[in-house]
Design a protein around this nucleic acid. Structure first.
Lengths: 211, 211
DNA sequence: GTCTATACACTGATAGAC
DNA sequence: GTCTATCAGTGTATAGAC
């Protein structure tokens, strides 16, 4: 499996192993939950002895915390589309596209985040109260401005944001249910496009950003 | 705590205890996940010795399975509004109201379901493939008929249903995040009404069911 | 830095007195 | 039916050889 030629530099070796462990951990945490995941299984998936995990990450929780942080960063980057946009149709449309693409490419990360929040965010509550709170308030102001400029209906910004998060992340978090209802097959490229189109149509039309 | 006068009948006693255990289990499973939940903690919450749980429910998994089934039944009942409705605005509007109310009253149940599906439904996959599949196909036909009758836009029924589930259940599954962004307080009655209004406005207008 | 062996705590489940 | 005591198995984490 992992017999590609490895770098000799200690620093690079460390980075490689950490990346390997984080990828394995994201997968295992997403499939089994924090409590159900075991360091042994993560080690097996990463192709390393269990003790090495404790060398790179002192505890199970510290490893978990880094996994959650990574996803949060990815989502924050998708927010750029929001700020640069000239109006709601463009900005929110691009945000939906970006979040849907993340659901498709990083479903495991999305699940880990969902699980963490569902369990009352025991590990990343500080992020919710600081970074996420500030981000949300900033985006709410933009939406309020669009409303004031009569470029969309008078919608409560927070409930609109919740709907955007809920709808896009549903395709990752409940991907297994969607796959089952799709006859047991993952969504094809065309079906993903149809999903994006449906979501954008309903929401952009629903807030009065397009006709 | 649980010192209310107990019925003497064995059958009633059994029902009482099972109900007590199921309520405690729903709470603990929702807060800790299947792997993180312990029979000891469920017993403590229920106010019973741990061994009694194994008397009523032979294994941890059998107890968990019953918890998941209960939530599923509650959701199925909310579907009645869909069938009896005369058109999309009425039917889908009532469905949103019903699902939002369930999110408010049974957040723990919703979380247990979400967690189960996120982990690829190891315990209730059969339900997804039979009951849920049939339910979805039936509702999709109703939506297709409404589209054919030009009472709403030509929306893909499945993606519309996913959006309905995602949006309404988000208020239960991500309730902690919403509470945090609400300044640490649970949504008030008025805020719940505002949530319902926003969701109905966006979706009903988004699918062209109202002006 | 890596890995084997192991310490120590805890979990699900059960036996058996009441 | 109820509950105490306990077992066998597994989990996280670490000590120490290499």
């Amino acid at each position: 499996m992992h017999d590609a030629p490895r770098s000799n530099s200690k620093r690079e070796r460390r980075q490689e192993n950490e990346k390997l462990i984080l990828a394995a951990a994201e997968k295992v945490f997403s499939e089994a939950g924090f409590g159900g995941a075991t360091m042994q299984l993560i080690a097996d998936v990463a192709g390393l002895p269990k003790a090495n995990l404790h060398y790179y990450f002192p505890t199970k929780e510290s490893l978990y915390r880094q996994v959650v942080q990574r996803i949060f960063q990815i989502w924050l980057q998708a927010a750029d589309t929001f700020d640069k946009a000239e109006g709601p149709a463009e900005g929110i449309g691009a945000y939906i596209d970006a979040k849907m693409e993340i659901s498709r490419r990083h479903p495991a990360g999305s699940k880990v985040w969902a699980s963490e929040v569902m369990h009352r965010a025991p590990v990343i509550q500080d992020y919710l109260e600081t970074t996420l709170m500030e981000w949300t308030e900033g985006r709410a102001k933009i939406i309020d401005r669009w409303v004031a400029e009569e470029r969309m209906d008078a919608i409560d910004p927070n409930h609109l944001l919740y709907m955007l998060w809920a709808t896009t992340q549903h395709y990752a978090d409940f991907g297994h249910q969607i796959e089952t209802l799709n006859g047991g097959s993952p969504l094809t490229d065309d079906q993903w496009e149809a999903a994006k189109t449906s979501v954008k149509h309903i929401i952009l039309r629903g807030i009065g950003a397009i006709k």
